[in-house]
Simulated scan of single mutants.
Amino acid sequence: MKILFIGSRLYDDLDWYVKSKGIESVLTESNEDAINLDLPDQVFIVPRGMDGPKQVALMQNVDAIVPLIGIDPPLIDVAHMKEEVEKDYGIPVIAAGVRAVELTSNKIKTKGFYTEIGVTTPKYQILNSPDELDLELPVVLKQGEGQGGKDIKVAKTIEDVEEYFKEFNQALCEEFIEGAEISIEVLGYDGQYVALPPIYKGETTLEGTHPLNKTKTGPCMVEGLDNNLVQHTAYKVAKNLDSDGIFEMDFMYSRKNNQLYAIEVNTRPNGTRYLTTATCGVNSLCELVNMAIGEFSLADISDKLQYNYSTEIPVGDYNGPKANEPIKSFENNDFVVHGPQGYQRVTAKADSKDELEKLVDKLT
């Protein structure tokens, strides 16, 4: 079995799994100085875009293609390549299709999609000037495209709104929901979908604290919230997107209104994947490989499920005990260190809250 992986930044997260399966790995990357280029069996440096990876896939006669792209802009090119390669050459590409990417990469289109399928989302309006504001302050101002908190502002006053419009001509304006931030991964392939346990990402703040600066925990345990509702809603969204790969969804839960609100969807690997793996034993990146080799099934996911307590803590630079090989896997570890120097995080798991607390004390 030979698989082409597109992009090297995330490849070390699953290199151990690829080798354990006896898969021949081919990787394309546009940056000759990128990390992890020493890990695959073959590496091809190609121009940006999807034409290079497509040509390598055909030249190498690969059995499947797994894009490992963690940013939004290239996703539509990946989606178009997927449709062409699957139709013309019969090579499966484990990624979202054009319709799913178009609906999820633009926050305004995502809002319309939620309304269409009957999923509750915060009240919103498209704002072309501060004078048009109809929602009560505070509000959240966003651009249609962007990720990782980019171009998002919590506006507490009309002056904050006016300040935002010094940089932008238009904004997606949402009501500010006070409550719990929740993420959940859904895996989907060939019409099969499974929602993994929800992750608690902290509370919303008027300061707009970046997610990387928050401590996260799994499974989500928020008073008043039924995790089955989160999983059912996430499953409904993924089912209606009708595509393949990883779907990471963000929700807000308002205790005041006892209401779950859908915020956005990402059709790519995401930042909570370590915490999800620690919590339930299912590694979403490894499942992309399983989709590629025909070993993905709901029964297999069910057999893998574990029930752990986990947490993810920002540490800056990690100086604790060394992890066992493979260091990016929970197979032989109860913790994983990830992220670049200066911005590292530790994700740890244990059988109980008490054991998790002791482990965190040892690691930090």
Rank of each mutant, 00 (worst) to 15 (best):
M81L: 09
L103P: 00
V85M: 15
I108R: 01
P92Y: 13
K82L: 12
E86R: 06
L103S: 03
V93S: 05
E83V: 11
L103W: 05
D88K: 15
I91S: 04
I91W: 06
L103V: 09
V98P: 00
A100L: 08
K107D: 06
A95P: 00
G97T: 02
V85P: 04
P74M: 02
E84W: 10
E83D: 11
K87M: 14
R99M: 07
A95F: 09
M81P: 03
A79N: 01
K107H: 13
E86G: 07
A79L: 03
R99H: 10
V101C: 06
I91N: 10
E102W: 00
K107Q: 12
D88I: 11
I91G: 08
A100M: 14
T104M: 08
E83Y: 12
A96Q: 05
P92M: 13
H80E: 09
I76E: 03
L103K: 02
A100R: 12
V78P: 03
E102N: 12
S105C: 02
V93Y: 00
E102P: 00
A95M: 07
T104I: 03
E102R: 10
A96F: 07
M81Q: 02
I76M: 03
E102Y: 04
I108L: 15
N106G: 06
P92F: 14
G90N: 12
K82C: 11
K87E: 15
E84I: 14
L75R: 05
I76D: 01
N106P: 03
V101L: 09
E83R: 13
G97F: 06
K82I: 06
G90E: 13
S105E: 09
E84R: 07
E83K: 06
E83A: 06
K82G: 02
L75E: 05
P92Q: 10
V101R: 06
H80G: 00
R99V: 11
D88W: 13
I108V: 14
I94L: 15
Y89K: 13
E86Y: 11
I91R: 07
V101G: 05
V78K: 09
E84V: 10
V101D: 04
L75S: 01
Y89E: 06
